[in-house]
C-alpha cells in the first residue's frame, strides 16, 4: 500500500508536474511539497509526490553501507 517510487520531475505547472522513470511518464500532484524543481527526484505514491530525495544523503547511505560491510 505504501509503495513509493523515485521519479524525476521533467516539467511542472501549478500544483501538477510530469515525472518520469526511464520512458514511463505520468502526471502527478505536487501539492504536498513546496519548492519542487525540474530535475528533482521525488518519491511518488498514488499519483502524488510525498517527499524529495536528498541526493547527498542517498550517497552517504551507500558509503556507510560500503564502510560497515567491509
Amino acid at each position: 500500500m505504501c509503495l513509493g517510487i523515485p521519479m524525476k520531475v521533467v516539467s511542472k505547472k501549478g500544483d501538477k508536474a510530469e515525472v518520469r522513470s526511464d520512458k514511463t511518464a505520468r502526471q502527478i500532484g505536487i501539492g504536498l511539497l513546496k519548492d519542487i524543481r525540474v530535475g528533482d527526484y521525488v518519491i511518488v505514491h498514488a499519483g502524488f509526490a510525498i517527499e524529495k530525495v536528498d541526493e547527498k544523503r542517498a550517497k552517504e547511505t551507500l558509503d556507510i553501507i560500503k564502510e560497515i560491510s567491509l
Binding site: I5, M7, S21, D22, T24, V44
Partner: peptide, 8 residues
C-alpha cells in the same frame, strides 16, 4: 523501461 514501469 519495462523494469521501471513494473516498479511503478
Amino acid at each position: 523501461s519495462t523494469k521501471a514501469a513494473c516498479e511503478l
